[in-house]
Design a protein around this nucleic acid. Sequence first.
DNA 1: TATATATTCAACCGTCTGGTTGAATATTAG
DNA 2: CTAATATTCAACCAGACGGTTGAATATATA
Lengths: 109, 109
Amino acid sequence: MNTTSLDAALYAVADPTRRRIVERLMRGPARVTDLADPFSMSLNGVSKHLKVLESAGLLRRTCEGREHRLSLRHQPIRRIQAWSNQFERFWTDRLDALAAQLEKEKENE
Amino acid sequence: MNTTSLDAALYAVADPTRRRIVERLMRGPARVTDLADPFSMSLNGVSKHLKVLESAGLLRRTCEGREHRLSLRHQPIRRIQAWSNQFERFWTDRLDALAAQLEKEKENE
DNA sequence: TATATATTCAACCGTCTGGTTGAATATTAG
DNA sequence: CTAATATTCAACCAGACGGTTGAATATATA
């Protein structure tokens, strides 16, 4: 597992404001002002959050005149998916072991 | 999406040390000292990390005499899975749109 | 009982965080 | 040219973070 980039992705997405921004961007690209609109926070505050998301690779920024258009990049979230999916086998193995254990106890009665 | 607990889970797991601990615990439960062993860090440091993981619900702690046995809980990681899987449809939709777009351009030639 | 082991608590420290405000930059509109 | 809009930069702040050290607690062992 690539540690450093996963660190940044998880960290970026651990903040509720940033996560709301990411979720918002699922519905398509948006400008800084649009993204800032739902929050009772200064535009600068949001701008800083965007910088965090961007440097973690979650956002693509294209400048069109004075407006910046932000859109989602999938790689970092895919990394998070991959990391959390890694545990799937662990859970099922444990459930299997538990089932086997119960089976065994049943036989011994 | 339950924001608060997802916050805690993502935050807990964003730290590389804590993530290594969680990955270690996939291979079965362990004591505090065991978990601290691979790290060049004071035992207290690790103890604090464990507290973070525990309060985020990622760890179950059972005290056996003077030893504390830590094991993994699956719910928080499942929440992370659920959150990141949410984007799956978004990516595929976007790919579909892209494919449709290409198809259209091809027809117009 | 005395001692070693396992673990936490408490205080401290430099650094990073999330947020603010005010000024700067760049582009568009009147 | 001037004014409005979109955005960032820079400096600041209180609080949290990741880590340390030293002492305290609780259990096991000789």
